[in-house]
Design a binder for these strands. Structure first.
Lengths: 243, 243
DNA sequence: GTGATTTTGTGTTTAATAACATCTTTTTAA
DNA sequence: TTAAAAAGATGTTATTAAACACAAAATCAC
């Protein structure tokens, strides 16, 4: 059973067993009987995605629940005039791509890898089956969905009512919360393009560039290419709150 | 067991039994064993709310799952500068007010009656208990949450990227979809104030008034006080889509 | 019924941000 | 290695929608 899945990511080659993957998913793993566990291992597939590679697109029919084993993923929506809005970001180890399946819709969002990522797929029918035999697992997804819905509602209001600087400050803090910082405690682990920052913050790329520069001049952040270090988190929080 | 709950609503007095209420909730009712059913009936409370009466507020701790038996309810968030954003509307018979409980948070939204409403409350702990013993019921809530999350994400992008007319057109269509029309097939069943329309569409009240007048002049809708009749739905759809 | 309050309607001004145009720098691919 | 493409930077203009001000109409409280 311990067959290795070979994943070539950029230069280095990573060897990982499906067992290893499942062990990183305690909520799912602990909910399974030995036979169910065997089933999941058999049906699970694992593959690597390159930086910026699409994972699924708006309109696709969801067939699998996805799990980000390593890397970073963005969930976004293409709006009017080709402008994309990132609705949330996914960090490892987290499930994603199951919402549409649970409401029997096609995807209304798209997903792409922010950076090289390893993603496990489990057929959604199997997950549904497991949920219907395991209320604990069902409650796990209820909780995940409830958290996501609360954040989405908050995001709706933040993106609509705050001004540019407030939205940008919030995005910076959101990235810190989602992906954390390096050992120095202030450099974001993720290195988003200015366009990504714009798509997170509901503004044009020009305005993201301008406002980031302004924040840097005000010594709230420090910029080094795509690297962002937070110098004055309190001030950012204040700007984010004030709108 | 068939004790009557007396509800005075405006002028008329409505008599309703808890059994009647439970019968309107087939998803819940059918999932219950006789003892569970008895428990729910015992713990359920029913009360009437006047027009514009608050149901819960941001920051409150959720203790009950609510069910709108009759009437209409808005779920909203107060944003920067005292401006409210309606994030969704509830029609009868629908559950609401359970999201925060499922993610162990206090409410991040507020709810108020759009018009006189009757609402049943069931202790959330009882619901949680039932879910953990009834995967079918769990899946019911997974489905509801998944649908709500999809709509919330779509709403985020619509409210941020579309222009005023697009947002207003969309709100009108959303109210038609949510509450339907009178027998004529075009007069909305709900009669929202201009401020409600503004809070649905993320704009100032002035702009809601102006844009509604513009739609009326263009013969897309007809206005009679707070009554809105849709004259040209195709055109509204086009305006909503274009942004 | 009547005065007070709220809601609706309209015009004007101002602020915010998108759109556009260029230019520079960095990254990518042959 | 170099040409092409993409990303980043910056200034200018145009557009959108908010803010403000005030008047009329409708609704509410007593």
């Amino acid at each position: 059973m311990a067959k290795y899945v070979s994943l070539r990511i950029k230069i280095q080659k990573i060897m990982i067993t499906k067992e290893d993957v499942l062990k990183k998913l305690p909520d799912l793993d602990s909910a399974l009987s030995p036979e169910q566990r065997e089933q999941v291992l058999e049906k699970m597939t694992v593959r690597a995605y390159r930086k910026n590679e699409p994972i699924y697109s708006e309109g696709d029919t969801p067939k699998h629940m996805l799990c980000l084993v390593s890397g970073k993923v963005k969930i976004y929506k293409d709006g009017v005039g080709g402008r994309a809005q990132i609705v949330r970001v996914v960090n490892s180890v987290e499930y994603f791509g199951y919402r549409a399946a649970f409401s029997d819709e096609n995807y209304v969002t798209a997903a792409a890898a922010f950076e090289p990522s390893i993603i496990a797929s489990i057929p959604i029918e199997l997950i549904r089956h497991l949920i219907l035999h395991n209320p604990q697992l069902g409650y796990f997804f209820i909780r995940r969905l409830a958290i996501a819905l609360g954040k989405s509602d908050a995001r709706t209001v933040n993106l609509t009512q705050k001004h540019i600087r407030g939205r940008l400050a919030e995005s910076i803090l959101y990235l810190k919360e989602s992906y954390g910082t390096e050992e120095d405690g202030c450099t974001l682990c993720i290195h988003p393009s200015r366009e990504d920052m714009a798509n997170l913050s509901n503004m044009t790329t020009s305005n993201a560039i301008r406002s980031l520069s302004a924040f840097a001049q005000e010594k709230l952040i420090e910029l080094d290419g795509r690297r962002i270090r937070i110098l004055n988190e309190n001030a950012l929080q204040k700007i984010s709150k004030m709108g």
